[in-house]
Amino acid sequence: MTVLEQLNKEKIMAMIRGVHPDAADRTVEALAQGGIRFIEVTTNTEGVYALIERWRKTYDRDLIVGAGTVLDVEMAKQAIASGAQFMVSPNLDEEVIAYGAIHHIDVYPGVMTPTEIVRAIKFGAKAVKVFPTGSLGGASYLKEIRGPLNNIPMIASGSVGLNNIREILHAGAFAVGMGGSLVKRDWIESGNFSAIQRLAKELVHVVAEERATH
């Protein structure tokens, strides 16, 4: 099964950004125990490449670990060298997509408009990150844009949480990216990693229910 196929099955990609390495380790442990299988750690996180390398070894086949906020080829090189299994960016960069393709690593670029979505696929992206989904209109925007472009896998990212994940999936999201709505800053700062684990379990349960009814 390819990384993209596994993402379509799991549906949830948890994003860790700007968390201290020690807290990041505990966060990933909580997410894994809660059933999350896709982890994106952004390049503006302290020790990001060491984290990717460590999690790849620690969790082996239990997690699929990727690099987020990959803005240029140099970042892509470091991410792949550290063992990233996929890369995500907030923007559309042809060179990053091409570099990923050469190394057989999926790149999911951030896009907003139909033009950007189609360009990303032409450049070689296998899926796109529709970002920021919340600001664009949420499920209604996703549903409308998928009308003419329903053959393109779209990862909804931005303002996706337990309150609207069903609606986003019903609108046709291939998967969802979840940052602060799952990896809550106040929980991390207070050491409440069990709350992250519980929320992860709830979200995974929602996905399982959706899978069972469709």
Rank of each mutant, 00 (worst) to 15 (best):
M112A: 12
N91L: 08
S157I: 01
Y99Q: 06
A173V: 01
Q85W: 05
I165M: 14
A50S: 14
I105R: 15
A171N: 06
N150Y: 07
L63F: 10
R54K: 15
I155K: 03
G83Y: 09
I102L: 14
K57R: 15
E53T: 12
A76N: 09
N163A: 13
R56Y: 05
H170K: 15
A79S: 15
K184N: 12
S140R: 07
V73H: 10
K77E: 15
L182T: 04
H103Q: 14
V107N: 11
A76M: 08
H103M: 07
V48N: 13
E167L: 03
M178K: 13
A173G: 04
I102G: 02
V73R: 10
R119V: 02
K184M: 13
K129Q: 04
D186K: 14
M154F: 04
A139M: 02
P148Y: 06
E46S: 13
V107Q: 09
G110R: 07
A156G: 01
A173P: 00
E189R: 14
A171G: 05
G100A: 11
G137A: 02
G161C: 06
R185I: 10
G68Y: 13
H103C: 04
I52E: 09
Q78R: 15
N151W: 10
H104P: 00
I97Q: 08
D72N: 15
A139C: 01
G68V: 11
E95R: 13
S89C: 07
A98R: 15
P153V: 02
V73I: 13
G100Q: 08
R61I: 02
D72L: 08
T58H: 13
G134K: 08
E189M: 13
A175W: 00
V65E: 09
P114H: 12
V96P: 03
A67V: 07
H104I: 01
A139I: 01
E74A: 15
M178I: 15
S135M: 04
I102T: 14
R119H: 11
I64C: 12
V130H: 04
D60A: 14
N150G: 07
N150R: 11
D60P: 00
F86G: 09
G110C: 07
G124I: 03
L136Q: 02
L149N: 02
D93G: 00
K143Q: 09
M112K: 06
G172P: 03
G66F: 11
I168W: 07
L162T: 05
I102D: 12
G179F: 07
I121D: 01
P114F: 13
S135V: 04
G100H: 12
H104T: 10
I105P: 03
T113R: 07
G138T: 02
E116M: 05
E116C: 00
A125I: 02
G83L: 06
V130W: 04
G68L: 12
N163E: 13
K184A: 11
S135Y: 01
E46Y: 12
V176A: 10
F131A: 01
T69V: 06
R54P: 00
G158P: 00
A120W: 05
I64E: 07
D60C: 08
